[in-house]
Design a binder for these strands. Structure first.
Lengths: 215, 215
DNA sequence: CTATGGTATGACCAGATGGTCATAAGGATT
DNA sequence: AATCCTTATGACCATCTGGTCATACCATAG
């Protein structure tokens, strides 16, 4: 995994490292993997192309390194939310997790865009592995919430856990997508919503999950 | 909309038209829009590149024409399901609609792949318009089911309709994605599921929607 | 002052792209 | 047979791509 980056890069002053990673993230977040241009990256961060190929083995190496960094940031953020809400009720934790997701995306839109690229660009290197890792993390996160909810008697114990997690995962993912891809969301207008409205919509959704649709 | 295709193309014998559209669909479904190659299309269907540019204004024109055809096929299929289940109960209609979706994708995987491309390739021409159209259709479809369900007293009338539709739309879309993108679905294994299993999972999901999660 | 070794450079390569256009082929009407 | 119009062709163009490599730079060590 780390054999894609050369020690030359790690020896660089941190500011320069960051400038390069920033340019790479911007480019990969903007275009599809194959369309992302190494030429654009180097001219954006003001180094020679040859230099970049002294830092990384190839384009794929740059990509994997950037992706790894992005994922670890997401991980850290969500794990923190889980710990901070450990004592609260299941449905409250759902709401707070979703809110934290929205907040993360608004602060790191390019990282989320990178994730969307992995989701649907079939030609991303090692896509299967990267994608599975991310989704598995989400499923584990939700699974741990669900199991604790069941143990505390806050949610029904008679439901197949996998299906519950699937439903929650689907809803979370789409909600987050809707906050930044307006065309996804022809009903709730989440992209233009302020935080109060976001909270309201989250409350409504979790309310439906809680009590069901049947009359 | 139709000013992208030239009359020359429409005058062609139907078999030749189909061969060309088939090659174009295959290529657009396989790669991202910008990565899809006109050269590949023409050699796949055995015509000269110049000919293709006599049938369509440019690459974008080919794409929009193919997309329009695909969308109208989806529309026809789903409208038929809606009509055929008009008399049945809300939750049954949900189940049958989902099942019809799975069936359509298995019979027309390339069309569904094309849709996924629109979803996440930010550089697809007129993406906003195409995407909004598709999502609006889904929302209208589900909305009509919901309103009839409310009118018949099958589902609660006290819920905000938009939010209900949003939830259903999210769940439907992800379920369909899971049936053909294994990495999406680390919990249910839908890709390998036979029809009996698919029916079971659909039943469980709709069951949760019906009665909620709370203990 | 020189030698060493890591670092930086950008001209260059082969290959691909979308799109063009002069030319040719077909078929119908005169 | 001659004219005319539509359709078919593929060599060609400018432009971009990821990747290479001989060369230059520069700090330290002898």
């Amino acid at each position: 995994m780390v054999d894609t980056v050369r020690s030359t890069f790690l020896n660089l002053p941190e500011a320069k490292q960051e400038k390069i990673l920033d340019a790479a993230l911007a480019e990969f977040a903007d275009k599809s993997y194959e369309q992302a241009s190494v030429n654009v990256m180097v001219s954006a961060c003001g180094i020679a192309k040859g230099s970049l190929y002294q830092y990384f083995k190839d384009k794929k190496g740059i990509f994997l390194y950037v992706f790894d960094l992005a994922v670890s940031r997401v991980r850290r953020t969500l794990v923190k939310v889980k710990e901070e809400t450990a004592g609260e009720e299941f449905f409250t934790r759902l709401e707070k997790s979703l809110l934290a997701g929205v907040d993360f995306i608004r602060r790191h839109p390019r990282i989320y865009n990178l994730y969307l690229k992995i989701l649907f660009d079939q030609r991303v290197p090692e896509r299967e592995r990267l994608l599975t890792a991310v989704r598995r993390f989400a499923a584990d996160y939700l699974g741990s919430l669900v199991r604790q909810g069941v143990a505390r008697g806050e949610i029904r114990a008679d439901l197949p856990e996998h299906t519950v997690i699937f439903l929650l995962d689907a809803l979370f993912d789409r909600f987050l997508q809707a906050t930044c891809v307006p065309a996804f969301d022809v009903t709730l207008n989440l992209e233009k919503a302020d935080e109060r409205e976001i909270r309201e919509r989250i409350g409504e959704l979790v309310g439906i999950l809680r009590s069901g649709l049947a009359a």
